[in-house]
Design a protein around this nucleic acid. Sequence first.
RNA 1: GGGCCUGUGGUCUAGCGGUAUGACGCCACCCUCACACGGUGGAGGUAAUGGGUUCGACUCCCAUCAGGCCCACCA
Length: 792
Amino acid sequence: MESKLKDKAWTKEFEKPISAEFLKNPFKFDKKSLKLVYSIDTPPPYVNTPIHMGHAATYSLMDMFARFRRMIGFDVIFPLGLDRNGLPIEMAAEKKSGKKFNEVSREEFLKICEKVLEEASTESVDSFQKLAISFNSWKLGTGIGDLYHTDSADYRALTQETFIDLYNKGLIYEDERVNNYCPGCQTTLADAEVIYENKPTIFNDIIFKIKETGEEITIGTTRPELICTCRMVIFNPEDKRYQHLSGKTALTPIFEKEIQIKAHPMAEIEKGTGLAMMCSAGDLSDIRFFREMGIVPVIAISADGTMNSHAGFLEGLKVKEARKKIIETLKEKGLLVKQTQINHRTPVCERSKDEIEFIAMKEFYLKQTDFKDKMIQLADKVNFYAPESKQIYLDWVNSISIDWPISRRRYYATEVPVWWCECGEMILPPKGKYYRPWKEPSPVKKCPKCGSAKIKGDERVFDTWFDSSISPLYILKYSRDNEFFEKNSRCSLRPQGKEIIRTWLYYTLFKDYLLTGKPIFRDVWINYHILDDKGKKMSKSAGNVIDPQEIIKKFGAEPLRLWCAVEGNLDSTDFRCSEERIEGAGKTLTKLWNVSRFILMFPEPEGKVELTALDKWIINEINSIVNDARAKFEKYDFHNPITALKNFLWETLASHYLELVKGRAYNDNSKFSKEEQNAAVFTLTYCLEKMLKVFAPVIPMISYKIYNDFKGKNIHLEEFPKADKKYELEFTREELMGLNSLIWKTKKDAGKSLKAEVILLTMPEKFKSIEADLKEAHSVKEIKYGEIGVKI
RNA sequence: GGGCCUGUGGUCUAGCGGUAUGACGCCACCCUCACACGGUGGAGGUAAUGGGUUCGACUCCCAUCAGGCCCACCA
């Protein structure tokens, strides 16, 4: 008999033509369909580096979610987005041109960025295609489900529009903020560009006076030029030496400013003299401290890196000069007790290695501290998978103490859509267009306030998260197709990594709440990480990065996908990437192929079908798997159902049912009736069909091929199976499998072949209904009923 | 330094109050007509460590250790 599956085994070479076929017929989103919409806010990967193993795994899982939802009747929005904004692109451009972004004109620099983007690797897209990820489309466009770029005019226009809306709602304001500033590169830096080095620094012990008692105290500092910004002296609450100072007033040297002395755990007993002066020169932590204490910070360094009027006699000096000068002055006045050289962890510029200065600049802020309670409540309206991940979000929201700074001084990002009149009036353009104020004229010729025509465009851009946080709005056509958006938001699912909960997830929930008044996601699926085979995090510098293309080349995409499902639940645990285990997953594909090949050897049964108890048993088994899978897939758990299905395939179906039913299916000696033989074939194909459909979202290519040869139809357009009614049976799965195993073991222990005859099989009466199948399968001469026993 | 999460045979995983599930790998035997990418059998775990609650704990609580994620790095 010839099987409908001709090839002896499934090989990775079969994947190519199938994935090509998938590409020809993508699952386009059909706005006119009457189906319910299920939308996935996919995380746009960065284009400048090819996707790594983590992407391959998480997108494979997202694809399982998408394919499953389609099979249960949803129209799925599953777009591919490519992230092209921000620093990584600028870094690549700088590397390529050998020039820093402020060394060439803005226009020129953007051209280099665009060139970098043009040449950006298409390897990621190729990987997605090889993995058979079922995005709605691979073509760039502005329709629902189309491929989108985060730097497109369309996307950026929407980002700018949300700025205009939020500004008009009174939620955005401008304020002076301290920035990391590199004097070498002459630019502000993001925190991520700052590294720390141990550098020898002079630690100066300086005398402060106590106003009430005249006592002198000594405080150590590496930044004496900032004494003018000192607004508090603190000591550790446990520090016995200074308890008497609590509540007293200190006078700063030279400036004679009165400041409070307080106990605060931030002061360390062993560090310096145990007394610390708190200056508002520094970074966010200083700002936070001042806010906590209710003190207004004083900024003494201006944007050009020189001391301003707050610094008094130091005004106009550069920071280092100011430090020199004040040390001289302190020495003259006898206020400098001691100078020691210490190794100090100093923030330096990642590239030029210059010491970072902190200077104040005006930046836009989005109010968020007022919304903390709301954002905590909002989390209860979102389903977190796994639920434990919610805590990461809550912890972050609780720790927020300052508003969100949304403007940056870089080039390749969405421009802040603002113009400024010489009189200081801010001019907002109307919504709906993409604006580039640094090169475009203002939307109004004259300032509405003073009538002046001297209007300049703002040169700042947005923080990338200000862009990224509108992705669900963008893919659901917020403000572009209001009817559609109203009907189909909230977005069904946000899948993302655990490490960006405080950024991408929080900012999206927050900003989109401000804009729409609702939690934008229904479900949030948080994924953990793929580690290398030793359990270490993959990183370029460690050289342990596993390339998914290599894995696909070696084993194929299907084993990789199956491995993702079988390895564990990525929503609660990291995976170690082991080639051995991925290869092992491939064996299940072969097993599935061979079982299918066997089943598809028998012609479709004609005439009546009379199910035996054995058939009913295996039908119960597969149905309970179908039930379980339906329920758990909905909750993004593929691991447990697929593990169960895999076990069903290997053990229950292949080892037990198949072995027992073989004789009846062949029926060479006509020991069984035609109806019974039909039942065997019917049951086998029944199991195969359901099994393939449960596997289909996980391993779409092999299931597509088998189902096509089996039914001549596209399995991915079929409905996900439902369980049929359950049959009552006298024996359990364990009892049946135990009986088989006992017979096989008895033969083996006696050194006989498995085909050897059983002279007498004694078994409980509950197996009477499957007597004929047992007799045939185990070559039993005689059967008796009673205590179990095998005689050979 | 702070917060949160995790810790089950060599590797990975299930269950989550009654001494442990399955897979991969390993060893032995077997080419039985779908499959040697197979079959059968076997070795291998005092559940990170130490306490506590309980008649009883892998399962609950505390501490320690290790790993992960995020934040901070300041006199």
